[in-house]
Each structure stands twice: as C-alpha cells, then as structure tokens.
C-alpha cells in the first residue's frame, strides 16, 4: 500500500477530520487505491505544459467599492449551534 495508517492519521489531522481507530485500516486501503489510480498520470509527459486551473481564461471582474449587502448578523446567527450576545461561542481557547 502506498500509505500507512500513520500517514492517514497525519492527513486526517491536517484536515481536522476525526477518524475512529477502527476505520483507519479501511481509509488507508481506499486512499492507497485512489493514489494508485492517480499515479497513472505519470505515464504522460507534461514538461512544458502550462497548468490549467480554470476552464475559461478570464481575470477577476472588478466593481465599484459600494456597499451592496446589508448586515444580517441576527438572521445568520439563528443558524449557529451556540451564540450569545451576538457572538459565536466555541470552547475556551485562551485560559
């Protein structure tokens, strides 16, 4: 396999994605298979090829710096798991 369970643990932490220990083997297996598929790309020579990030060659549009949106803080905070006094609550970060 191209990856070890330790590799997957590291990647999962980078992605802030919890993986249960009993699922690690399966993810390692599947990701290794995916990587195997991806290494097929090496059979094509791409020296001198300009990478393509986007289907259409265009630059970002600019617009006048005018206010177009109104503040909807309360409306949006209705969706949040925990809010208090207009701020989003998370576990204490700084003691």
């Amino acid at each position: 396999m191209l990856l070890t369970t330790n590799d997957v643990k590291k990647i999962a932490y980078l992605a802030r994605l919890g993986i249960e220990d009993h699922d690690l083997e399966a993810f390692t297996h599947d990701l290794s298979n995916m990587l195997n598929l991806m290494t097929q790309m090496n059979s094509i020579n791409t020296d001198e090829v300009e990478p393509m990030a986007h289907p259409l060659p265009q630059s970002q549009r600019l617009r006048a710096d005018n206010v177009t949106e109104t503040n909807q803080r309360e409306h949006f905070q209705h969706l949040a798991p925990h809010v208090e006094d207009g701020v989003y609550l998370v576990p204490k970060v700084i003691e």
């Binding site: 997957v8 999962a12 802030r16 994605l17 993986i19 993810f27 990701l31 995916m34 990587l35």
Partner: peptide, 20 residues
C-alpha cells in the same frame, strides 16, 4: 470541536475525498 463535528457530520465518501 472541529475533529468530532466533521467526523460526525460527513459520510465516508466525503471523508475520503477531503483526505485525498
């Protein structure tokens, strides 16, 4: 909070692609 919210909220295929 991040690790478990995402672990519980996403299904296996989404997790695989995020990891990949």
């Amino acid at each position: 909070l991040y690790l478990r919210s995402r672990a519980e909220g996403f299904g296996s295929e989404v997790k695989r692609r995020i990891l990949m």
